[in-house]
Amino acid sequence: MSKNKQGKKHIHILDGMSLYKRDKSPFYWGYLNVGGEIYKKSLKTRDKREAEKFLFEWKSKLLLDKSLNKLNGNLEMDVLKNPVVNNTRRKALMITSSLMGAVTVAGFAVPFLSAWNPSERAKALGASVKFDLSKLEPGAMAVVEWRRTPIFVVHQTPKALENLPKLNNRVTDPVLSEGVARSTNEKFTVLKGVCTHLSCAPKYHPEIEPKAWDEQWLGGFFCPCHGSKFDLAGRVYKGVPAPTNLEVPPHTFEGDTLIIGELT
């Protein structure tokens, strides 16, 4: 038994090697002096014989570390020194957890992406609108607002309906299979009042008379922005900037009531 400066009781083993007990710790602690460097740690045992054994093991490990250090300098982090690798298991776990991660990310993405869909308020504002057709005289046009778009509702005159097939060779897309007036109702045509060229609003010119833009005008829509011409059913003339017919919005007729927009 000897006492060092700090007053701890040391059990001398060899030169530079001793065991000691510390306050509060039930274990034996080891003290090593390897070439002038002091090492101390708990040996995590209450048994003296075992503690001695651990102390020797520790010293030889330190010596080995030191010699390796001197020889080729490949002393590494403890964790990298003794890898316990099971590669198949590792690979399987990596794949499973990557899949879980991907599902998590996708799961998080769903609500965030769906939040950009039209909200219930937008749907309410964009809901179908009703229009009473009984007050629309033949030859007259009404503009109904639907989803912030002017919708042209035209009450075709018999004369106009007669004239439409005559224009078949002057329009780009003459097919009238969708109905002469391009609607489910022979008398009324429903069109989006948006020029298919650059989104101006075409003007309604039902008169059958020579116009500045067309000598043989049989009535239709003329876009003042870039001179696109459409007939009364919204079919686009050949040789104008607009590429396609005026669009027909979804609509249904219920007796005298026109419903513009999808039915709920």
């Binding site: 250090n69 300098g73 490949n74 002393l75 590494e76 982090m77 403890d78 964790v79 990298l80 957890s97």
Partner: peptide
């Protein structure tokens, strides 16, 4: 520290700590 200057009682952040956080 080891010769590369890494602490002996250390472990690289990845994979030990990243996977520990999961």
């Amino acid at each position: 520290r080891d010769k590369k200057g890494m602490p002996l009682d250390g472990a690289p952040f990845h994979p030990y700590k990243t996977f520990g956080a999961l």
